[in-house]
Design a binder for these strands. Structure first.
Lengths: 210, 210
DNA sequence: GTCTATAGGTGGATAGAC
DNA sequence: GTCTATCCACCTATAGAC
């Protein structure tokens, strides 16, 4: 199975750089790119702001690296789903599971968050953001298309269009669920859309606790 | 028909206050609450920052007033839809039309935008935000429920659950469409979900230009 | 690689003249 | 109601010692 995703075109991350990204990621996912500062990261790591600039010269570069890594992790997760020969319905459920695991940490999807701030982001971040959504769209389109052809999924639109709807729905459901502090809202919404696609059995859906 | 929405519990807005809110609203919808400053508003209006503080003592109060007014306008729009005796499908289409008109100004829904920044907002804004989504949910739940009973809409879940899915989908589709600078993405997503509900005829859907 | 120190700018907010 | 002037906290970023 060929590697199709995320060539590491930047130098591999040092341990310090990774630690910085970890903290920055959590902050960006909860407060947004404009909602955290170098001071916040430095305080959590117990270092000074100046040392952060050694690893990431500017906040713009930090932000870009943030998305690049996130995108790579997501790509790896999608490859992992593809590694097993699963039915399209099951792949979709696992895809939704990726979102659920993000939300269960009381975080918003990094890229959904940054999409809201899109017009205030430095161009390199805007481009990384686009790459993330495009990669998701391609993967979902393939899965949906196979499911449709196999007769195990149902929808009327072109698979690509349906993929876009799905991404938007999951991001939006996350956004609202998090602002209510209620991950269950996301789970129910996800179950709804999976059911619409025929990816959930009716019996299975009602087993979600009300 | 009784008035159910947005009792004006604050003093009516002066012309100056309205002008300030107009500019602030545009900024908040495009850049987010943390993405604009008093200086931005003052520059656009050709006044000083100090004079803004006369009308809105703090940014928190400005932000709160922003949501309150937006919520009131939305409520009025929903009442306008209810004023005519329309079929539920048509009401849904007009509801989607409200979102489309926001996006066509290259803006994101104010409250979808602020939902992303939720954890950084002052509590009074968080509460106003909740009121907005709750009002939308109530209105949609009623419409969906009537449509289901009349047999002109189809879905399996409780109407309230479906209402939440719809709100999340529309907000999410807006978010992504705007970050691609492509309102058509929103329109197609909206057509998809309306079709799922049986609120669009198949013939009608394909008339959307590809 | 991390520190201290600091530059240069912008944030929201206030006092007081007009 | 709007202005000038100013305060102080915070922002990103840099220089240079260790």
């Amino acid at each position: 199975m060929k590697k199709t995703l995320s060539p590491p075109r930047t130098a591999p991350l040092t341990a310090a750089a990774t630690a910085i990204l970890d903290v920055a990621e959590q902050l960006a996912q909860t407060r947004g790119y404009n909602g955290f500062s170098y001071a916040d990261i430095a305080a959590q790591l117990g270092v000074t702001k100046a040392s952060l600039h050694y690893h990431f010269p500017s906040k713009a570069e930090l932000g870009r690296a943030l998305i690049e890594r996130y995108r790579g992790l997501f790509a790896t997760a999608l490859e992992a789903i593809d590694a097993h020969t699963l039915e399209p319905q099951e792949k979709l459920r696992q895809y939704v599971g990726l979102y659920e695991s993000v939300l269960s940490n009381e975080r918003m999807c990094l890229c959904g968050m940054l999409a809201a701030e899109h017009s205030t982001l430095p161009p390199p971040m805007q481009e990384e953001l686009k790459l993330f959504f495009d990669a998701n769209e391609r993967w979902l389109t393939t899965v949906l298309d196979k499911g449709l052809r196999a007769g195990v999924l149902r929808f009327m639109e072109p698979a690509q269009e349906r993929a876009r709807v799905l991404i938007g729905t999951l991001e939006g459901a996350m956004l609202v669920a998090r602002s209510y502090g209620n991950p269950q809202r996301f789970q129910r919404a996800a179950a709804c859309v999976l059911a619409d696609l025929g990816a959930l059995h009716a019996s299975r859906r009602r087993t979600k606790k009300a």
